[in-house]
Amino acid sequence: MESLGIVNYWIVIALMMIGLYIVISANNLIKKIIGLNIFQSSVFILYISIGKVGGGTAPILLKEPTVYSNPLPHVLILTAIVVGVATTALGLALIVRIRSAFGTIDDQDVQQDIERN
């Protein structure tokens, strides 16, 4: 249990690394957005893991005394998810416009197009 106790966090770190890796290495703008989403959701998992209380249940109050998980991270992450989807929507709209303007959604091609002018 002791050693397992922190495994959650290790996997979260791995997910974050993968997410950031995709954001930086992806040439395709949509893929970048997917990377961003993975990066962000792994942070969400980090927060929710922080709020987990062993043996607890969801923080919806019951009549009998119960151990509840920490509700605060849940609230924060609810907000963060919404922020995330807002960013995603805006990013995708930008991508669609970039496609109209440049004829491509490949970052390198876009940059080349810019440098050519």
Partner: peptide
């Protein structure tokens, strides 16, 4: 200029990474 779109997108990616770092 159409380049504003790619500028905005780049800013969006950087800005979101920044916000996520802050969040971490």
């Amino acid at each position: 200029d159409k380049r504003c779109l790619s500028a905005a997108f780049r800013y969006l990616v950087m800005g979101t990474i920044a916000a996520t770092f802050y969040l971490i």
